[in-house]
Amino acid sequence: MHDWDDYRFLLAVFEAQNISRAAKRLNVNHATVSRRLAALEESIGAQLFERKPEGYELTEAGLVMVSAAHTMQKALADADQLVRANDESLSGVVTLSAPENLIHAVILPKLNAFKADYPNIGVNLDSADDVKSIHNHDADIALRVTNAPAEGLVGRKLVARHMALYASREYCKARDAATDQIDHWIGRTNDPKTPKWVTTHYPRATASVRVSSNIALHQAARAGLGIAQLPCRIGDDDPKLQRVAPFKAEKDRDLWLLYNPNMRQTPRLQAVAKFLTNLILAEKALFEGTIAGPKF
């Protein structure tokens, strides 16, 4: 009979597709992973992976075992969450998952106030933009920008996130003074295409830099590297930035507060949910772009 540790090693190899990467995830050495995998294969009398140059590929037996491992993983996580959900004290740890720009600009500046009211509740902050962390029980509660919250989660829509175009004041001054205006825009590394807002409003512009994160996008605009499309909550609140043509804030998606239904009645989660709800709703005008900074 196998214990959970056997399945844990199996899942690590499956997810990493490589013994070395699996060992790193498990914080053990390469030989330990190889030995545990070989022992598991011997005990069930079947090969679980085909060793190929591009990585480890599951066999038919491996598919069955990985499916069983995922079932066990979910059952253990559900049990752990149900136990924690029955804890009625205002203490313990709540893991909050949110986009990194919200963590930096909105949550962290106000977190001291929450800690003053609830000194026994610890808060772990995880920057993420998808719902996997909640489904995998890596997070208890999350802020997500979406128009279609994932099934199996509960929560509420807080505000409609709006976007606008921004550049630094220094960039705008230099551009205004130039006789031959040449605009530059800031893009994302995960999107090689020219954004529609560039082709529509700045067809002569060239990409000055592409970045991989929301924080870097904001900082690149502040540094005067060009025009960037930013959430109004970030752009309008930054005194170094100002909106540029066409100035108008346009709705992007909604901002939702989401959590696993198993945890909805937990006092510490309710305390964090109330804090986040009040925090976001108090800044509704900023999120929806009705408070705008100076225009260029």
Rank of each mutant, 00 (worst) to 15 (best):
T194I: 11
N147F: 04
K193H: 06
V154N: 11
G155A: 05
D191K: 12
Q181P: 07
A139T: 04
G152C: 05
C172L: 15
H184G: 04
H137F: 14
T179P: 05
T179D: 10
N147L: 07
N136V: 03
A174S: 07
I182F: 09
D176F: 06
N147Q: 11
D138S: 13
T189P: 00
G152W: 08
A167F: 08
A150N: 08
K196Y: 08
R161D: 13
A142Q: 14
A160E: 14
L158I: 14
T199D: 11
E151N: 12
A167M: 07
W185L: 13
R188A: 04
T199N: 11
V145T: 15
D176K: 13
T194N: 06
L158W: 03
K157A: 14
A150D: 13
A142F: 02
E170D: 14
R156N: 05
A142L: 01
A160P: 00
K157N: 08
I182C: 08
E170K: 08
I182D: 10
P149M: 01
K173P: 03
L165F: 04
T194D: 08
C172V: 15
K173I: 10
M163I: 10
K196M: 01
V154R: 02
D138V: 10
I141Y: 05
D140A: 01
A148L: 05
L165S: 09
Y166D: 05
A164C: 02
H162F: 01
N136Q: 13
C172Y: 03
P195R: 03
T179H: 10
G152N: 09
